[in-house]
Amino acid sequence: MSTELTPGAPQELALPQSEASDLPEVVDGVAVARLYGEPLFKLPQDLYIPPDALEVFLEAFQGPLDLLLYLIRRQNFNILDIPLAEVTQQYLSYVEQIRRHNLELASEYLLMAAMLIEIKSRMLLPPKKADPNSEPEDPRAELVRRLLEYEKIKLAARRLDELPVLGRDFLRAQIHIEQSLTPRLPEVSADDLRAVWADMMRRAQLKQHHKISREQLSVREYMSHLLRRLQGQRYVEFEDLFELDRGPQVLVVSFIAMLELARERLVEITQAEAFAPIYVRLAYTPA
């Protein structure tokens, strides 16, 4: 069975006291580890440790320009007059280190190293004078321009990272503010009307007379009657619009008239709050 252990300081696995008492005593050496309660005095022969199991990065760079800028700024070189021989030598030594471990990561660094060598070779050649009145072009000019632009972007990114970030440095406070200036009254539901109507019918039955009569009742007539009752009134309580002493027939016709007026949007039925008295008012202002 293959077992992976970390070499170094001794390790012990926690075991119950009953099992720990059965362990053999160490006489000639010190166990480097315990495996299933048994002491190990040397590492197993089949222990495999991958070569890249432990990696330590002393410096982390974001790319070739980042490494080159680091070498220049660390030694206080003038970026407009870079000593390419010394910087290229240091750059290649670092690239050689990362090439041994990760060839894919070193590919882009090798491209920059080739560019540095090319610039150095161009500096060793006699400059080409296209115009006798103009100075010869510095082969390092393009590299300096890229380094300066990269440094500006890097400093700007650092300043942006120092700004407070939502979710990292602070949380957004949420509060609900009622934006409406006019108070909104709760809407009267059908259940509220049914409850009021049932209460009125119960009270009307207590006052009814055993008198048989025939009366022609008109819904339109009672609609006009209710509108006249509401004129000049700001609010009228729902129950005050009905004549309880005239019997259930009149109450039924009056209630139907009230519903017709509400359906035609001639009256409004409102309520200040839940379980509060219900009021009726005109939905328009009479001339």
Score class of each variant (00 low, 15 high):
Leu206Ile: 06
Glu264Lys: 03
Arg194Tyr: 13
Arg229Glu: 01
Gly232His: 04
Glu59Arg: 00
Leu251Ile: 12
Ile79Trp: 07
Leu84Phe: 10
Ser107His: 13
Ala31Thr: 04
His210Met: 01
Tyr235Glu: 04
Phe255Arg: 14
Arg122Trp: 02
Gln205Leu: 11
Ile82Asp: 03
Glu96Met: 07
Leu15Gly: 03
Arg74Leu: 04
Leu259Met: 12
Arg172Asp: 00
Ala190Lys: 13
Asn78Tyr: 10
Glu239His: 14
Ala14Leu: 04
Arg203Asp: 07
Ala20His: 11
Ala262Trp: 04
Arg228Cys: 02
Val253Glu: 11
Pro248Trp: 02
Glu221Tyr: 13
Met112Pro: 11
Phe41Glu: 11
Arg159Gly: 02
Glu25Lys: 03
Arg168Lys: 12
Leu241Ile: 04
Ile79Thr: 12
Glu237Val: 01
Lys129Arg: 14
His209Phe: 08
Thr285Asp: 10
Asp138Ser: 13
Gly167Gln: 08
Leu23Ala: 10
Pro132Val: 13
His101Arg: 15
Ala276Trp: 01
Pro10Trp: 02
Lys128Asn: 10
Val32Asn: 12
Thr182Val: 14
Pro39Thr: 04
Gln208Cys: 02
Trp197Gly: 00
Glu264Ser: 09
Pro127Cys: 12
Ile119Met: 10
Val95Phe: 05
Arg34Tyr: 15
Leu5Lys: 06
Glu264Asp: 08
Met201Trp: 00
Pro126Ser: 14
Ile177Glu: 13
Asp22Ser: 15
Ser254Ala: 14
Tyr284Thr: 11
Glu12Asn: 08
Arg220Ile: 08
Ile256Tyr: 00
Lys211Phe: 10
Arg246Ile: 01
Gly232Phe: 01
Glu239Ile: 10
Leu15Ile: 15
Leu84Asn: 02
Asn102Ser: 12
Asp138Phe: 04
Leu80Trp: 13
His225Ile: 02
Gln97Ala: 12
Glu135Tyr: 11
Pro127Tyr: 08
Val95Ala: 05
Leu241Asp: 09
Thr88Ile: 05
Ser254Val: 06
Leu266Val: 06
Gln233Asp: 01
Glu86Trp: 07
Tyr284Lys: 00
Met200Thr: 05
Met123Val: 07
Phe41Ile: 08
Arg203Met: 09
Glu59Cys: 09
Gly37Phe: 09
Glu96Asn: 11
Met1Gly: 06
Leu54Phe: 15
Met1Asp: 00
Leu143His: 10
Asp192Lys: 10
Lys128Val: 15
Ala20Thr: 11
Leu65Lys: 03
Pro164Lys: 09
Arg74Met: 10
Ser21Glu: 15
Leu171Asn: 12
His225Ala: 03
Glu4Thr: 12
Asn76Tyr: 15
Asp169Ile: 09
Leu65Tyr: 05
Gln233Val: 09
Phe77Cys: 02
Gly247Leu: 01
Ala53Glu: 05
Ile117Lys: 15
Met258Glu: 01
Val26Phe: 09
Asp138Thr: 09
Glu237Ile: 00
Met223Trp: 00
Ile256Glu: 06
Leu259Cys: 08
Pro277Lys: 03
Ala198Gly: 05
Ala198Trp: 08
Leu206Gly: 03
